[in-house]
Design a protein around this nucleic acid. Sequence first.
DNA 1: AAGTGTGATTGAATCGTTTTAATCGACTGG
DNA 2: CCAGTCGATTAAAACGATTCAATCACACTT
Lengths: 335, 335
Amino acid sequence: MVVSVREVAALAKVSVGTVSNVMNRPEKVSPDTVERVQAAILALGFVRNDAARQLRAGRSRSIGLVVLDVGNPFFTDLARGAENRAAEAGLTVLLGNSDDDAVRENAYLDLFEEQRVHGVLISPIGDTTERLARLRERGTPTVLLDRQAENRNFSSVSVDDPAGGYTAARHLLERGRRRLAFVGGPASLRQVTDRLAGARSAVAEQAGATLEVIETTALSVLEGRRAGESVMARAASERPDAIFAANDLLAMGVLQALNMNGDVQVPGAIALIGYDDIAFASAAVVPLSSIRQPSELIGHTAVDLLLREAANGAEGEHEQIVFQPELIIRASTGG
Amino acid sequence: MVVSVREVAALAKVSVGTVSNVMNRPEKVSPDTVERVQAAILALGFVRNDAARQLRAGRSRSIGLVVLDVGNPFFTDLARGAENRAAEAGLTVLLGNSDDDAVRENAYLDLFEEQRVHGVLISPIGDTTERLARLRERGTPTVLLDRQAENRNFSSVSVDDPAGGYTAARHLLERGRRRLAFVGGPASLRQVTDRLAGARSAVAEQAGATLEVIETTALSVLEGRRAGESVMARAASERPDAIFAANDLLAMGVLQALNMNGDVQVPGAIALIGYDDIAFASAAVVPLSSIRQPSELIGHTAVDLLLREAANGAEGEHEQIVFQPELIIRASTGG
DNA sequence: AAGTGTGATTGAATCGTTTTAATCGACTGG
DNA sequence: CCAGTCGATTAAAACGATTCAATCACACTT
């Protein structure tokens, strides 16, 4: 019960070439033949075999997207932006979730390369540039997401993380807080270290202000809760009076921990600010101040860059696009 | 600069057949030949072309997953479960987002069928059973998610939605509420109508209790907010004293609307319960009571069913698995 | 020494679509 | 009436990995 162009051609009494033409450039085929072939396709329930098509074409019609965490709305929003733009260009997005794991990241890159995807968008964990360079050398255009390559060797779409970190910390300082804590990790993530660096420079400018770092093993709600609990375990006088979390998931976890016992007021005792401004941030126990990133726009732009990169060939220029983040003030830092 | 098995074979001074054997069943090849071939692969940076492989094999090594909304954590959790189980079986999951749109759903089904995926998992919108029956007839095993086929013609993994709806409404009634409102839609979604039906029967059992329906066009935070605002627009005496939202996203939107002006107390004036128990529910402004569904387990089980279905061939039995939901009580219904 | 078995390797056919050069008919203008 | 053109169609050659029957080399048995 396998139906290939061969059967369709036989039924429509034409050659396989004509069947192919009907599917791909019907204007080259006489109207009545088109009709006859389409009738045959329908009658037999023919579905074209994409593997054969790709084999001939050399490249697939999809692009691979590797994100750090599909559970993070920031990345699903970004994916939506990429998907929409890709759809306009007739391409499909394959979504891979590295879950902050180098092995999984690598597995997805292998898979995408074997599939000869049109290109790869990736928010890399740690330092993968060597692997990515090889990927590109072998002909798969690559764009970095949410991260700039040190050596400008890659096209990238990112947001100014040091500036975001600076803005967040500055905001807390302006609210009169002096004993800040940064919650985030792992340090292998560039986003984390950049935001921390930004916060550091803001604190350095302010006499009498301090910044402690509470490191986490992931950017998840659970890890945030753990960090929050470690703060709660201290005597009240030992606690920071403001917390800057490296993303909103962490911030929400921290918030849960602080609120669980009900004895720590936010923002009364501790002000809290997150990062990303995911949709849930505004609906939190205490609506969360945050640093907004234009997530959909990032995905959208990344696809544009990828298409340009693909068109230019290997020796084209690489373009770095950096968006500016935006401070969103809500109740968690005193409205 | 294209590298195929041919080049590898030439460099290693063996035949292409041997190269293939090295990759797929190295135990059939003498150790030193294996080594020579692998060295050649590495030296040339050879990456096997998946399209050619699939063409020969007849089927791809991935399974297609079509969900209603990737923005909904329920579905990303489900996807994670599916992905993990699939990985154990050496398969990849391709995630498609129908966004509650029949056209996009169809596009993904076409794509997956053209790719000759191992099988399809889908949370169908509206009535797609005819389309799915054809898909299966042509050889692609299919499992329904979060939805049972009326005629038992499909394997499916779902949760008892009428029971969940009943439980939610019953809980509100037991808290002394009598003027309930159901927020949800569109009515084309089976999940919505089933949960509503369950709620209806609970209300019918309770003398003096009423249930109004506020229909939405989607199960999103935004639509929830819209519904909440329509409630706020009424005189206080005309408002319900309890709201059952068809999922947590809606419930969080409702909550935002009720809280925005600050004048409606939850659960004081209006008790609120959602559905799914997504991770963010417990971190909401007012921690949200909800009906928990075992999302990861659903994804996991669905892949199992799919593999069984694929093994049995077309005329095998179809299995319907129904999980029971669980009431989670938090502050939004009075703790 | 002939025959038998075994393990390693090979060569060619195959999967299904796309593409290109070639062919065919019919028609037009000189 | 013939050369030339044009549109529609065809046949065959790709694309690259897999697989299976055939071959080969070599050791072991009788």
